[in-house]
């Protein structure tokens, strides 16, 4: 079977082939779920937000403007839905989300995670979850989804410069921890 592009699938759905939406859901559900889990730090909330995101996306499909990639548009909906869930849970995130001057000091988590991690790679991945939310999201979108910094800035509504600063700070924080444990020689 020929592989359909996102735009071809969207055209088909808009022509009335509703069932084709399952192709888009299958393609993006795992990555969107990974993003939401990192954002919400709770599996049930992530699942609920994932469902809301895909229903919202379906309902807005006709208004999708093709000047951006579908994936960028979808992730923006996923990200904003995640933020809505967070604010509805009344978690104290506003100050955390309002500036890039978030604390990238991961020292307080280091002992526990270092003692439980089986290897350096696992240690790094567990530490990603301890990064400030936006730092972790930039890392996920950049590495896991292969998005460019420009696309990430569109998804998160941040400037390109701030997005790059978030990525560098996240990597630097993880780098400092590797140096502390002298993991760099072991990993390369």
């Amino acid at each position: 079977m020929r592989h359909l592009s996102d735009l071809e699938i969207i055209d088909s759905i808009n022509r009335g082939n509703t069932a084709d939406y399952s192709l888009l859901v299958n393609k993006y559900k795992d990555r969107a779920f990974s993003l939401l889990k990192r954002l919400l730090k709770n599996e049930m909330d992530a699942e609920e937000a994932l469902q809301d995101s895909f229903l919202k996306t379906y309902n807005s499909l006709k208004s999708f403007r093709r000047d951006a990639q579908f994936s960028t548009w979808l992730y923006k909906i996923v990200y904003n839905t995640g933020l809505t869930v967070l604010s509805s849970k009344k978690r104290k995130i506003e100050h955390e989300m309002s500036s890039i001057d978030e604390s990238f000091d991961l020292g307080k988590y280091d002992n526990q995670i270092y003692s439980n991690a089986e290897n350096a790679h696992q240690y790094i991945l567990k530490m990603v979850d301890k990064l400030p939310v936006r730092g972790a999201l930039v890392v996920i979108l950049f590495y896991m989804d292969g998005m460019s910094l420009s696309e990430i800035s569109q998804v998160m509504g941040t400037s390109l410069v701030n997005t790059k600063v978030l990525l560098h700070r996240s990597r630097n924080a993880l780098k400092d921890l590797l140096l502390k444990h002298n993991y760099q020689e072991e990993m390369l």
Binding site: A120, I124, L125, L174, D176, L178, Y183, L188
Partner: peptide, 8 residues
């Protein structure tokens, strides 16, 4: 260390 982070 930065490269190790990047690869990980």
């Amino acid at each position: 260390a930065l490269r190790a982070v990047d690869e990980s």
